[in-house]
Amino acid sequence: MDKAQCACGSLEVRSSQPPQLTAICHCLACQKRTGAPFSANAFYSVDCVTISGPSTAYVRTADSGRKVRMHFCQICGSTVYWRAEASPSVIGIAVGAFADPSFPAPTLSVFEETKHGWVQLDETVVHFQGLPTGQ
Results as ranks from 00 to 15, higher is better:
Val110Ala: 01
Tyr44Thr: 03
His26Trp: 13
Thr114Gln: 03
His26Thr: 08
Tyr81Lys: 06
Cys27Gly: 06
Val59Asn: 10
Lys115Met: 09
Leu21Gly: 06
His71Arg: 07
Met1Gly: 11
Cys73Pro: 09
Val68Cys: 11
Phe111Gly: 04
Thr34Cys: 05
Trp118Cys: 04
Asn41His: 04
Pro104Lys: 05
Asp2Pro: 04
Gln120Arg: 06
Phe111Leu: 04
Leu108Asn: 02
Arg14Cys: 10
Arg60Ile: 14
Met70Val: 15
Ala42Gly: 11
Gly77Gln: 08
Ala4Phe: 01
Thr61Arg: 12
Tyr58Leu: 12
Ser10Pro: 01
Lys67Val: 12
Lys67Thr: 07
His127Glu: 11
Gly53Arg: 07
Pro132Gly: 04
Phe43Met: 14
Val80Asp: 02
Glu85Gln: 12
Ser102Lys: 14
Tyr44Leu: 07
Ile51Gly: 09
Ile91Cys: 09
Tyr58Arg: 03
Ala36Arg: 14
Ala4Asp: 07
Pro88Thr: 06
Thr56Gln: 13
Val49Cys: 14
Ala36His: 13
Tyr44Phe: 15
Ser15Asn: 05
Leu21Phe: 03
Gln17Gly: 02
Phe98Met: 06
Leu108Met: 13
Ser15His: 08
Thr50Gln: 09
Pro54Asp: 15
Phe98Pro: 06
Leu131Lys: 08
Ala29Asn: 13
Leu121Gln: 01
Ala94Asp: 10
Ala36Asp: 10
Glu113Ala: 07
Ser87Met: 10
Ala62His: 11
Ala29Ser: 12
Val80Asn: 00
Val59Glu: 15
Ala84Ile: 09
Val90Asp: 06
Gln17Cys: 02
Val110Gly: 00
Ser87Ala: 12
Trp82Ile: 00
Gly65Lys: 08
Ala84Trp: 14
Gln31Trp: 12
Gly134Ser: 03
Lys67Leu: 13
Ala97His: 02
Phe98Asp: 06
Asp47Asn: 10
Met1Ser: 13
Ser89Tyr: 07
Val68Pro: 08
Asp122Ala: 02
Pro37Gly: 04
Ile93Thr: 00
Gln31Asp: 08
Ser87Trp: 08
Gln20Cys: 13
Thr61Trp: 11
Tyr58Cys: 09
Pro101Phe: 00
Ala57Gln: 15
Pro132Ile: 12
Leu28Thr: 14
Ser52Gly: 12
Lys3Ser: 03
Phe38Asn: 05
Asn41Cys: 05
Gly96Leu: 00
Val90Asn: 02
Asp100Glu: 09
Glu112Pro: 04
Tyr44Cys: 08
Ala40Tyr: 15
Pro18Asn: 02
Cys73Asp: 07
Val46Leu: 09
Val110Gln: 00
Arg33Pro: 05
Ser78Leu: 05
Val110Glu: 09
Thr107His: 05
Thr133Ala: 13
Pro37Val: 15
Pro106Arg: 04
Leu131His: 03
Tyr81Arg: 03
Gly96Tyr: 03
Ser102Thr: 15
Pro101His: 06
Arg60Ala: 13
Asp122Trp: 06
Leu121Ile: 08
Arg83Glu: 15
Ala86Leu: 12
Ala36Cys: 10
Ser45Arg: 12
Pro19Ile: 06
Val110Asn: 01
Phe103Asp: 04
